[in-house]
Simulated assay, not measured.
Amino acid sequence: MSSKLTLLAPAALLIGACAVDPATQSFDPGFGEAQKYNMAIQTIDPDPVYTAEDAQPGDNGDKGAAAVKRYRTGNVKAVEMMGTTGGGSGGSSGGSSGPQ
């Protein structure tokens, strides 16, 4: 138990030392800013303000409504199949695993 304490005590002092300004012996004014910034960018604005150039709520609603109507009436568009080109991506395809 004491060996763990002797290892953790210096680490705690080093971490705490980064937050205190040695000249004033007070916390750095920027301490915790990264955490505050991360919280702020993940918070949803409950009352957003949109300008005329911004995407508006309901944009492309006509496409969505048409898709729901097709789904409900059984007229769903067929899935479009896409092909790929045969490029060498380095994967094995049954051949040898290296240069000969």
Rank of each mutant, 00 (worst) to 15 (best):
M1P: 15
S2Q: 05
S2R: 08
K4R: 14
T6R: 11
T6S: 13
L7D: 15
L7R: 15
L8D: 12
A9N: 09
A9G: 03
P10E: 01
A11R: 11
A11C: 07
A12Q: 09
A12T: 03
L13R: 15
L13K: 15
L14V: 08
I15L: 13
C18T: 15
C18G: 11
A19I: 02
A19C: 07
A19E: 02
A19M: 00
V20H: 08
A23V: 06
A23T: 11
A23F: 07
T24N: 07
T24F: 01
Q25L: 12
Q25K: 12
Q25R: 12
D28T: 06
P29H: 08
P29D: 08
P29K: 09
P29Y: 05
F31A: 11
G32I: 03
G32N: 06
E33W: 03
A34L: 15
Q35N: 09
Y37S: 15
Y37T: 15
N38Q: 08
N38Y: 06
N38A: 09
N38T: 02
N38I: 00
N38D: 07
M39C: 05
A40S: 05
I41K: 01
I41R: 02
Q42E: 06
Q42S: 07
T43E: 08
D45W: 01
D45K: 08
D45F: 00
D45T: 06
D47P: 05
D47G: 10
D47Q: 10
P48D: 02
Y50C: 00
T51C: 03
A52P: 01
E53D: 07
E53Q: 05
D54L: 07
D54R: 02
D54F: 00
A55P: 00
Q56G: 03
P57C: 03
P57N: 09
D59G: 02
N60G: 11
N60W: 03
G61C: 00
D62R: 05
D62Q: 01
K63L: 04
G64L: 15
G64F: 14
G64K: 15
A66R: 10
A67G: 04
R70L: 11
Y71Q: 14
R72K: 12
R72L: 10
G74C: 03
G74L: 02
N75M: 09
N75E: 11
V76Q: 14
V76P: 09
V76N: 13
A78C: 02
A78Y: 03
E80P: 02
E80M: 12
M81C: 09
M81P: 01
M82R: 13
T84G: 13
G88H: 06
G88D: 10
S89Q: 07
S89E: 04
G90E: 04
G91D: 04
S92I: 13
S93L: 11
S93K: 08
G94I: 04
S96N: 10
S97N: 14
G98D: 00
P99E: 08
P99K: 07
P99V: 07
Q100P: 04
Q100W: 01
Q100A: 15
Q100L: 14
